[in-house]
């Protein structure tokens, strides 16, 4: 059975792909098509997240999505859940308030590298330190996409962006190392290409008590275009060819540099730490 969807902008009816059948009650179909560029990885994450929520064993109405600003910040608006689209960088503290006020809620923050790690960086490390019992998915596309391609805290040194036309001078964050050092209970890194692993990781995230972080590598054509890396598919190919899975990797050793010669993925950290509240 497929679902017919009326495209809001054109009024044309199209059929929702069968791959979405199991989660169609979780997607705000009346909002499709989404705003993301062709080739963007966020659609894959949307599908996997919806599926993981559906199969999390936690009642759907107890799931709350909190997002900040950026392309990734739009993900909550496509999920038919209680979703809060808040100010830039502040999704984590908003989520902390939700969770503390009602510990029965399963609160998941989804944000981009800029939203979570730049403007929201302080909230990220402190929520990890407290080990607040929330989930944070960081979609790392190495750039500020929505604002037109400026460098972000994960942009590798050497990369060209609209604000680093001569090549980026700064060092990027190593996200899993940062999350681990700050105190997260669960730390993983996957890519949107690794759909099975990412899906399992999302399910695990819902089971974990404490601050759970998944870094999701995701193609952004704004980034690849600027750096002559081809299109999103080429970027996926790079991930496919060069990534290795090592759950026991030394986190200090898993930076992603501009060459992308080494991309280490895995479920790196799962540990019991006291949780701040609830």
């Amino acid at each position: 059975m497929s679902t017919e969807v009326e495209v809001a902008t054109t009024g044309i009816k199209v059929e929702l792909p069968k791959a979405y059948d199991d989660i169609k009650d979780l997607i705000r179909i009346d909002r499709l098509p989404h705003i993301w560029c062709p080739g963007c990885g966020l659609g894959i994450l949307l599908k996997l997240l919806a599926r993981a929520i559906k199969n999390s064993g936690i009642p759907i109405e107890k799931h709350v999505i909190v997002t900040g600003i950026g392309c990734t910040g739009r993900i909550g608006g496509y999920l038919r859940l209680d979703a809060y689209h808040v100010t830039h960088g502040r999704a984590i503290p908003f989520a902390v308030g939700l969770k503390m006020a009602n510990p029965e809620l399963e609160v998941t923050v989804v944000g981009g590298d800029g939203d979570i790690l730049a403007i929201g960086g302080n909230h990220f490390i402190h929520a990890a330190r407290r080990n607040d019992d929330i989930n944070v998915i960081i979609v790392n596309n190495f750039i500020y996409g929505m604002t037109g391609g400026q460098y972000s805290p994960t942009t590798p040194k050497g990369a060209k962006t609209t604000t680093s036309p001569y090549g980026h001078f700064e060092n990027p964050f190593n996200v899993p190392l940062l999350a681990y050092a700050a105190g997260a209970s669960y730390v993983a890194r996957w890519s949107v290409l690794h759909q099975n692993e990412l899906y399992q990781s999302l399910l695990e995230m819902f089971r974990v008590k404490g601050f759970a972080v998944i870094e999701v590598l995701s193609p952004c054509i704004i980034y690849t275009d600027r750096n002559a890396m081809g299109d999103a598919v080429d970027f996926m190919k790079v991930i496919k060819e060069r990534s290795t899975i090592d759950h026991n990797a030394n986190l200090a050793d898993i930076d992603i540099d501009f060459s992308m010669k080494k991309i280490v993925l895995g479920n790196f950290v799962k540990r019991e730490r006291p949780v701040s509240y609830g």
Partner: peptide
């Protein structure tokens, strides 16, 4: 900033 964000979050949860 985090304080007011958390306050809004908690109020959204009904408290």
């Amino acid at each position: 900033i985090a304080s007011i964000a958390a306050v809004l979050g908690a109020s959204a949860a009904g408290v």
